[in-house]
């Protein structure tokens, strides 16, 4: 049990320190790398409490896909310079109240949740679904999501679809004058379309573009 606790504290320490480093570090790319470290240590924590499916999905979705896109954008836009300018400018104080407000709200929400859990133990009995400890958590998630909560599941799918279509519509632009390759056109071309035999008269030449 002691080994368990030690490992837990190592991971949570890494998670907290890297979360702080995300906001503190001057270089934006370094921030994203710390964010990735944070994601990884949180997924390790998930695995430690036995939620291995959540932990792996966290790795695949957040670290494997979302953070890659983050990195992409940050590296391409060269935000590092912008941020430094912003730090030095006089207008920076206007952002602090907003951030403070958000963090205070999150802090109180956490107090309510954790306090309720701590001081009113019968709150745990109000969970909607019995937890079956025999099943692996992949199976138990599947049996819940695809039966009782199928509508919510499909609804979230619809939200994602709308977001996807929205992103495509926002970024799609039809450029004119782009030469596209069509395999079918290339393959279905035959000799008759490509080659023409012409008798050239002396001193007259041939009009090719006709």
């Amino acid at each position: 049990m002691i080994a368990h606790a030690i490992v837990f504290y190592i991971f949570s320490l890494i998670a907290i320190v890297s979360a702080i480093m995300v906001t503190v570090s001057k270089n934006t790319v370094n921030s994203v790398f710390f964010l990735i470290l944070d994601f990884i240590s949180i997924s390790c924590l998930f695995i430690m409490i036995g939620a291995e499916f959540l932990g792996m999905i966290m790795l695949i979705v957040y670290v494997g896909a979302v953070a890659v896109l983050f990195l992409f954008v940050v590296m391409m836009l060269n935000v590092a310079q912008q941020k430094n300018e912003w730090f030095n400018s006089s207008g920076r104080s206007s952002h602090i109240p907003v951030g403070l407000l958000v963090s205070i709200i999150i802090f109180f929400e956490l107090i309510i949740v954790i306090g309720g859990w701590k001081y009113k133990p019968d709150l745990l009995d109000s969970i909607a679904i019995e937890i079956d400890t025999d099943l692996t958590n992949t199976q138990s998630l599947g049996t819940v999501i695809y039966t009782d909560y199928i509508h919510l599941f499909q609804l979230s799918g619809m939200v994602l679809l709308v977001a996807m279509i929205g992103a495509i519509v926002l970024t799609f632009r039809q450029r004119s004058g782009v030469k596209r390759q069509s395999y079918f056109k290339q393959i279905s071309r035959d000799r008759k379309d490509g080659i023409e035999l012409v008798d050239v008269e002396n001193n007259k030449g041939v009009k090719i573009d006709a």
């Binding site: 990735i36 291995e52 499916f53 792996m56 790795l59 695949i60 990195l71 692996t136």
Partner: peptide, 25 residues
């Protein structure tokens, strides 16, 4: 012999891209 072995393999192979991005950047 973990329960989510294939997800682990998939996750690790999808992390492989970081070495390349980090090196390139």
């Amino acid at each position: 012999d973990i329960n989510v072995g294939i997800l682990y393999l998939f996750a690790v192979s999808s992390l492989g891209v970081y070495g390349i991005i980090m090196g390139g950047w």
